[in-house]
Design a protein around this nucleic acid. Structure first.
Length: 355
DNA sequence: AATGCGGACAACCGCGTAGTG
DNA sequence: TCACTACGCGGTTGTCCGCAT
């Protein structure tokens, strides 16, 4: 049979930890280690706590070299960059920031970074939209004077645009070189293998019998993948950014994968790769994963809620013809680019040198 | 001084996955 | 192979604290 039950929940203390409890737990773990069994730990120490709770307390607070608060700009950059790439995989993001816990980063993102970026992006977008509207009006005023919007009204235009889907279809597809598409597929596939093992290395044939067009050469190292995709602003080896490129964990692959899962950059899902998108749907990425993964703020509440109206909502990954470009994907793209620029990632490198 | 509000952070909850017998 | 449980993770909730009114 399996293991013993976790803990007697009725006999377990909840709520904030007292200094005494902290001391006991810390002293014991420092002396004996966790013993690989968190459930047994509180009993050994004499704490009326759930093992889960002990683990959390240790990992998030008592563990040595834990940093609290005071996130640096560099750390902000890393968090943003990784969030763009992989979404709310806090444990992976935390792995790139020594001394930071996933809980800490999660809180920091939810309470500060998100708002900070949202505010900046809204501002930027508003001014951008204002400028383009001014230009439009200049043009239209020379031909159709009656439909002119008073200049005073420019600032009253809502931030979230209501552009027709046709505009989306006509929008240029960014970063759509063939090289990029192929490398994105490779990295995406590797990402998925890491993530869920849904694809084996030789799993080129999917359910419907069609073949996924993955590149033959998958021998690139994580380091290569990272260097191919993310511009590292600092060359200092002590920079936390180097933890990204040096690490042998999956963070670098996630970073690379941003071109695959970026709602604004989905050329890899076109054509022969539509079956790949169905694989993604099976895995739970039923729609643009970035949008569903805590990125709602990038789109505005309306765009999330109005499922029947919003063209984004009805677009699966297989249907990319109208996915690229505004109103939804390009908003994300704008946001993403803005975020990257905001934090000094002014240049994104694309595999094969395409841009 | 009292109250309300919002931000920040700690802790809990629930779920998926991995491990064990 | 299956049933069961621990572990780890991400989302959510609860609590504390500072600030404005």
């Amino acid at each position: 049979m399996g293991r013993a039950p976790c803990c007697d929940k009725a006999n377990v203390k909840k709520g904030p930890w007292s200094p005494e409890e902290d001391t006991k737990l810390k002293a014991y773990i420092e002396q004996h280690g966790t013993g690989g069994n968190w459930i047994a730990l509180p009993h050994k120490i004499g704490l009326k706590r759930c093992g889960k709770s002990c683990r959390l307390r240790w990992l998030n607070y008592l563990r040595p070299n834990i940093k609290h608060g005071g996130f640096s700009e560099e750390e902000d950059k890393i968090i943003c960059s990784l969030y763009i790439s992989i979404g709310s995989r806090w444990s992976i993001i935390a792995a790139q920031l020594p001394g930071r816990t996933d809980n800490d980063i999660k809180n920091y993102w939810n309470t500060r970074l998100k708002k900070k970026l949202l505010g900046k992006q809204r501002k930027e977008h508003q001014s951008r939209r204002g400028n383009s509207l001014k230009q439009d009006m200049k043009r239209s005023s020379s031909s159709v004077g009656d439909s002119m919007v008073p200049a005073d009204n420019i600032n009253q235009i809502p931030y979230w645009p209501e552009l027709p889907v046709l505009a989306a279809a006509a929008a240029p597809i960014p970063h759509s070189s063939q090289e990029h598409r192929i490398d994105s597929q490779a990295s995406m596939r590797r990402l998925l293998i890491k993530l869920g093992g849904r694809f084996s290395e030789d799993d080129h044939v999917v359910n419907d019998g069609t073949t996924l067009q993955f590149p033959n050469d998958l021998s690139t190292t994580d380091q290569d993948l990272y260097e191919q995709t993310v511009y590292v602003p600092s060359s200092s080896s002590s920079s936390p950014m180097d933890a990204l490129s040096l690490s042998n964990n999956i963070g670098s692959q996630f970073v690379n994968s941003q071109f695959a899962i970026d709602g604004g950059n989905l050329p890899m899902l076109q054509g022969q790769s539509t079956t790949f998108s169905s694989e993604l749907q099976e895995m739970g990425y039923s729609n643009n994963p970035q949008r569903l993964d805590g990125m709602e703020f990038l789109y505005g509440e309306d765009m999330v809620d109005n499922r029947g109206v919003n063209p984004c909502e009805s677009i699966g990954w297989g249907d990319t013809s109208s996915l690229v470009g505004p109103p939804c994907a390009s908003e994300y793209g704008v946001m993403q680019q803005g975020m990257l620029q905001e934090y000094g990632f002014s240049e994104m490198r694309y595999p094969g040198g395409a841009q």
